Simulated assay, not measured.
Amino acid sequence: MADTVPAKPHFPALDALRGVAALLVVAFHLLEVHATSHLDQLINHGYLAVDFFFLLSGFVIGYAYDERWNQMSLGEFCRRRLVRLQPMVVLGMLIGALAFYGQMNPQWPLIAQTSVGKLVLVTVLGCLLLPVPPALDVRGWQETFPLNGPGWSLFFEYVANLLYAVVVRRFSRRALAVLVAVAAAALLHLTLTSPNGDVVGGWSLEPVQLRIGFTRVMFPFFGGLLLFRTVRPGRIPYGLLWSALLLVTLLALPRIGSAGQPWQNGLYEAGSILIGFPLVVYLGISHAQASATVQRASRVLGELSYPLYMAHFPFVHLYFAWVHTHGLTLPQSAPVAAGVWLGTVALAYACLKLYDEPVRAWLSQRVLRLARPVSKAPGV
């Protein structure tokens, strides 16, 4: 059916910011291999990119879908989200399964003890985005998605999408503001009381980790939705540049405070999520004018971001295994780390063009039955 609703204006800066965050995530995970603790980790707050992705998703979901519910059913919304997200979930899990036995090293003895049948079962669960219970642990970290760690954030992304579609989309601004305020309080409590003074966690089926996961998604996602509903873009010269610089600074800043005072770092992380990331998005959408070159570069960064996020982690595990098997330091392995970083970017582009885009186009015709396309919003 043809869509008679005109497309909304596009925000190239949001594409660019998503790409910048994804590139930093890959670098963070590679450097994390060499960290001995939270205190000496390079790109120290790179894990907060997940919280930024949640906020950006909330903004974009509101932008793309808020005004379409008189034309769209809950089922259609769910199908659209599955078509957009699930193909790379499946491919990421398959890559993780293929790389699994190559990740054997002294720190992960469970890999060698994992049968092919168990690996197949964990792979099937991962492709369906069903959390793996601790009884099926294959690595030793009790991850919900041990073949491709970032799957945990997609699980909570789906949860937030369902909450939005079933309940929260009907909220008035005031009701949504109350929900966001409660979620902000929960987030602040988590960061100030966490033993490590951070929001790290959310990837295991046990009460503490589940609480962290839900706390991490609730404020950013619905805060992003509230941001969309209440804030209108300004006209800020070089808004994209300022937003990217602020994002990089927030993610790369060294650990705040000492091991004996973890609340100081927790306060920093709460400030980054509650204030810093909304400001990043506002600066981005307020970018005064994007040249054709900037728009093209932003589009490429945005298109690469999701395949890069979902495909890179198995190769980080391979790098981890190589480093720890041979006892290498960062200076010794830096060329390989750089090669993995560049290689995952190239792989993400190949996944995008050879798999993700063709599969989504095929599914759009069959699963959506040529249903009305949503507005061209970043990441939707």
Rank of each mutant, 00 (worst) to 15 (best):
T4L: 14
L17P: 03
G19C: 05
G19T: 06
V20Y: 10
A22T: 04
H29D: 13
L30I: 09
H38P: 00
L39Y: 08
D40T: 04
L42C: 03
I43Y: 08
F54R: 08
L55D: 02
L55Y: 07
L56R: 06
G58W: 06
G58M: 10
G62F: 05
R68K: 01
L85K: 04
L94D: 00
A99M: 05
Y101P: 00
M104W: 11
N105V: 08
Q107P: 07
P109V: 14
P109Q: 14
Q113K: 13
G117M: 04
V132N: 14
L136V: 09
G140T: 12
G140E: 08
S153N: 00
F155G: 06
V159S: 09
N161G: 03
V166F: 15
V168N: 03
L176A: 02
A181W: 05
A184M: 03
A185Q: 05
P195D: 07
G197F: 10
G201W: 00
W203F: 13
S204M: 12
R211K: 05
I212R: 04
F214I: 01
F219Y: 13
F221Y: 12
F222G: 00
L225G: 03
L227C: 10
T230Y: 03
I236A: 02
P237L: 01
P237S: 01
Y238I: 00
W242D: 09
A244G: 13
L245P: 07
L246Q: 11
L250D: 05
L253F: 15
P254F: 13
P254I: 15
G257Y: 13
G266V: 12
Y268L: 14
A270R: 02
G271E: 10
G271L: 15
I275S: 11
F277W: 04
V281D: 04
V281I: 15
G284N: 14
H287N: 15
H287Q: 08
R296H: 05
R299C: 08
L301W: 11
E303F: 06
L304F: 08
P307N: 05
L308T: 13
P314I: 06
F315S: 02
F315R: 04
W322T: 01
V323A: 15
H324Y: 12
L328C: 05
P331Y: 06
Q332R: 11
S333R: 01
V336R: 03
A338Y: 04
V340W: 10
K353L: 07
Y355H: 11
E357V: 15
E357L: 15
V359K: 07
Q365R: 15
R366W: 11
R369Y: 04
R369S: 09
L370R: 13
A371K: 00
K376C: 00
A377F: 15
V380R: 03
